[in-house]
Amino acid sequence: MTSAGILAETGSPPLDARSKALRSTVVEAIVAAGRGHLGPAMSLIEIMRTLYDHVLRVRPEEPLWPERDRCILSKGHGCLALYAILADKGFFPLETLATFCGHDSILGGHPEFGIVPGVEASTGALGHGLSIGIGRALALRMRGSKARIFVVLGDGELNEGSVWEAAMAASKHKLDSLTAVVDYNKFQSYGPTSEVLELEPLADKWRSFGFAVSEADGHDVSDLRRALEKVPYRAGRPSVLICHTVKGKGVPDAESNADWHHKNKLTANELTTIRSVLGGG
């Protein structure tokens, strides 16, 4: 049995109104644009929500506040989850989401630094975020800042060798202000991670690279909050939180279905079902 199967049996708490509303925002942006990565955004919703609601010290009205915590979405194709929470927090107007992927929109199919308020790095080419986080953590430590760095990685992204170059460097430099958050939804573009390129034993991998490791149910806000509020897990070490998630979470047909990784066109029936499940539309 796959890990995803185990998780489905174990079960996360039902999605609350806020989780459904954020998902609805993502779906409507994809509908407006006629494109977008649905599955990779849906598995991220509770992770991003918990970070921005409870963990990150940021100022939406001052996106470049020097003492802010930095959240880098390294799996850039999950950007709709980031855009939804940034708009919700007031980094830019909610209406901007309707321009997703449109001509001259600030909201491209992958997040761009310097263009989208609140976006901390241009990502989409995978395997960049953790190294960028290291650079930021080193610079902040040099100036005595207490600001922290959170880098959200995809599981498929962990195929990139550069992630493990960065992992070694992060532990060498004892960057306990750096936390990697893995959206472990067990699926990547082509299919299950267990078939494309096995990641297990994933926690042991990170441990062996010098990280202090914790795991959480990535759709349970209280579990995520518990895990994210206590970083660093060990002084002098970078932390990683492996979040067990479901790709396409909250959209019944999309859950753990690689066909929905980059779903462009939703049929009228599919959209009706999604809107009814999420209570949006």
């Binding site: 960028i132 650079g135 610079a139 100036r143 550069s162």
Partner: peptide, 22 residues
Amino acid sequence: FNVGMAEQNLVAVAAGLARTGK
């Protein structure tokens, strides 16, 4: 900082430093 024999990491760590005032 010697970031190891890892050129991708070298360039992206430098990017992170540059983004943070270095």
